[in-house]
Nucleic acid binder design. Structure first.
Lengths: 260, 260
DNA sequence: GAAAATTTGTTCGTATGTATC
DNA sequence: CGATACATACGAACAAATTTT
């Protein structure tokens, strides 16, 4: 339960922006507190679990009003940097990482920016394609057992579009997790949550059969350690899905550019 | 300048969580305002540029105190959903998308989670490798001109490690932007900001020469539309960098698994 | 389990800096 | 340049929730 000494805020100071990305409205006092704590996190002087003290203590340390401290804490909380608990022994502390939080940020900015489905699927191909290469090299027996289970499950859902789609999602996720790479896993989850149709009703039986066959081949390639084969299969499988889910892009002259 | 009618907050209501991700502390009144506005964004009833009114107006609309509205606005601002301007005609309005904000969110969670350098570099290989394939197919004349400029710049920095490293970063970024995929660009930026050494002093002249040669070959492959060649080059180039920047991982038995 | 202490959540009033018209 | 509108900031206080005793 380390306590870190934080300096008072210079009201009219220039505020050291050690990052190249612009902090949110660096003019406000609250944002200077935010920047200071974020810097401390990245420099390593603050780590998950460290306590920042209560609102009252922060008011004293920074010599600002309670509202200013609250503004800063609200921002830090929204960024996922701090967790706030009420009651005795509570207060603000540096949060543990939560990679699922990334989905929110991605979804919001994708929505506001209006990125195309093509960009999203291309990014997904990049991530899943690389992930299966790693998975083919690192998959454990437990990974293979779970993937095999999911294949059986999917087969039982061949005539149940909703459940089939969801099962297929779990298969993709398990495949990526088998890569052992949390960065790729987080980025995949974010993309999936951000822009894919929530309830795809396009998983008609014939499409489902096709997808299941692709999943089986993927499984075998990963099981046999054939990374390159798995990558190509994943790519053509996703191009297939792209044509089904986003038919308006099917006539893109660059279709299949990625790898297959 | 559309105005959207927002309903009052039910103090003890259950609060409709229409998303699967848990909103931040759904118990507080402020977070209910946040959820309501975020929902309105995703449902399409709020779009970039729409005005939410001033703090005072929001106080009246939601029938809560000023500080509660402030808390909500601070969260929404941090999420990048609203922009707040002071002065007459100011107030809160729905922000335009800013994909750089994603980098922040990713970098923070990667830092808090403590992902390994190996995971990061593997993800970078996935993203940059796919990006150059797209870049080879889509690069414009302007892209090539800028990349060529950066190569000349880098050559002049061969004996200046700090500037050489920075110039090289710009080259990688320009290469990815040439893919025309903003999702890949955002994810790359995040990785770069999150875990790479800020001031790499390892760009010794001999390493610099090696890197520059790799960049030249990458440029030629992209220029000539040879996507597969570019991918392999990018991969081996990044594996090279991995060995230089993170020598403690050089003996990883899985080195070179990705593609080369 | 109940009481007490601690801390956040919420409200009101007021003053000040700042951007717009 | 002045007036207006707005966000930012400060102080005091009570309510609600949570943890400790």
């Amino acid at each position: 339960m380390k306590r870190v000494e934080l300096s008072k805020i210079a009201r009219q100071g220039s505020g050291g922006d050690s990052f190249e990305w612009a902090p949110v409205r660096a003019t406000s006092v609250a944002s200077k507190i935010v920047v200071q704590i974020r810097d401390a996190l990245f420099s390593g002087s603050l780590r998950p679990g460290d306590s920042l003290g209560s609102e009252k203590e922060l008011v004293q340390q920074f010599d600002v009003s309670r509202i200013t401290v609250r503004d800063a804490l609200r921002s830090l909380e929204t960024m996922g940097i701090v967790e706030i608990r009420a009651g005795a022994g509570g207060g603000a502390r540096i949060a543990a990482g939560n990679l699922e939080r990334i989905s929110d940020a991605l979804a919001i900015q994708f929505k506001l920016t209006g990125v195309s489905e093509q960009e999203t699927v291309d990014a997904q191909i990049a991530i899943e394609g690389a992930a299966v290469v790693l998975a083919a090299a690192r998959r454990t027996a437990a990974d293979l057992a779970y993937l095999s289970e999911l294949l059986d499950e999917a087969e039982s859902f061949l005539d149940d579009p909703v459940n089939f789609t969801e099962s297929g999602h779990r298969f993709h996720l398990a495949l990526i997790k088998a890569s052992g790479n949390r960065v790729l896993t987080a980025q995949f989850s974010a993309l999936r949550h951000a822009v894919w149709p929530k309830n795809s009703d396009r998983a008609k039986p014939d499409n489902a059969r096709r997808a299941l066959a692709a999943h089986r081949e993927l499984f075998e390639a990963v099981r046999d350690g054939q990374g390159d084969v798995a990558r190509e299969m994943m790519c053509s499988h996703l191009e297939d899905i792209r044509k089904i889910e986003f038919p308006n892009e099917a006539d893109d002259e660059l279709g299949g550019t990625m790898c297959c």
